[in-house]
Amino acid sequence: MVKASASAQAPEEPRELFRVHPERPIIEVKGLNFYYGDFQALTGVNMTVKRNKVTALIGPSGCGKSTFLRLLNRMNELIPGTRVEGELLFEGVNLYDPGVDPVEVRRRVGMVFQKPNPFPKTIYNNVAYGPRLHGLREARQLDHMVERSLKSAALWDEVKDILHQSALGLSGGQQQRLCIARAIAMQPEVLLMDEPTSALDPSPPAASKSWSRNSNKAILL
């Protein structure tokens, strides 16, 4: 089902910038340095991320895992005084080239944060937030998208009767799965998860396996 909709979408979306070459790694990082003001947070990072795989980053706390993840969808540039050096290639294009639009990057590279951060809206509107932004208006399509995303995040059975209640009423673990569903609903090509396990009941790789298996995607933990 996932595959079908993904291929149905391909023709109406010409990927001028990020062209998919299945034989190439989806992300390549070359000689990446990152600074908060004068403080160098990352030094000489090199790595590749393969498509259709779950890639895990491990390391002691404070070693820069979160910082690195946030670089992959250009979230760090929201913090004043930060600076990036080196290359960060996504589908062969440097994410920090002047012509690259951070909004489009974040559309394609989804992110789930360490702390659950649902919007103070209903469960339904949380999941539908992204698709609506990108022009999906029709109610039936939205319903379908919300249901599929919630199922992928293993939350559907728990919330299908309370879709129109506030997301803030959910437990911490449920909120985190809601955030995963919200990210999945964007159909990103890469999903970044920043240590979401602490608040999760079933582990996130399991929860989103069904989603990643058949598509052209990678998950970073």
Binding site: M75, R106, R108, G110, G130, L133, M186
Partner: peptide, 10 residues
């Protein structure tokens, strides 16, 4: 919350 929204491509 703002980061969540931006991360969804808003």
């Amino acid at each position: 919350l703002m980061e969540a929204s931006l991360a969804l491509g808003a």
